[in-house]
C-alpha cells in the first residue's frame, strides 16, 4: 500500500478533508495544537466541504 500524499494539517486542511475525510482531517489538525475557536471554525469548513461534495454527487 502506498503512503498517502503528505499534507499539512492546517495549510492543506481542505485537501485533507477531501482526501482523508473530515474526521481524519480534524484529528490531524488537533495534533498541531489549535485554539478551540479555530477548531470550531475548521469543523464548520469541513461540514461545508462535505456538504458541497454530497450536493455535487446528488446533482
Amino acid at each position: 500500500m502506498s503512503e498517502p500524499r503528505e499534507t499539512n494539517p492546517i495549510t492543506d486542511f481542505k485537501a485533507n478533508v477531501i482526501l482523508l475525510g473530515a474526521k481524519t482531517a480534524l484529528l490531524k489538525a488537533q495534533d498541531v495544537g489549535i485554539s478551540p475557536q479555530s477548531l470550531a471554525e475548521l469543523k464548520r469548513q469541513a461540514d461545508i466541504i462535505k456538504s458541497n461534495e454530497r450536493q455535487g454527487i446528488e446533482k
Partner: peptide, 15 residues
C-alpha cells in the same frame, strides 16, 4: 517551544 501564532487564519496555541 512554540509561541501562540496564526497560520492560514488558524490560531495555534502556545505549546
Amino acid at each position: 517551544s512554540r509561541s501562540a501564532s496564526s497560520l492560514n487564519g488558524v490560531d495555534l496555541k502556545g505549546v
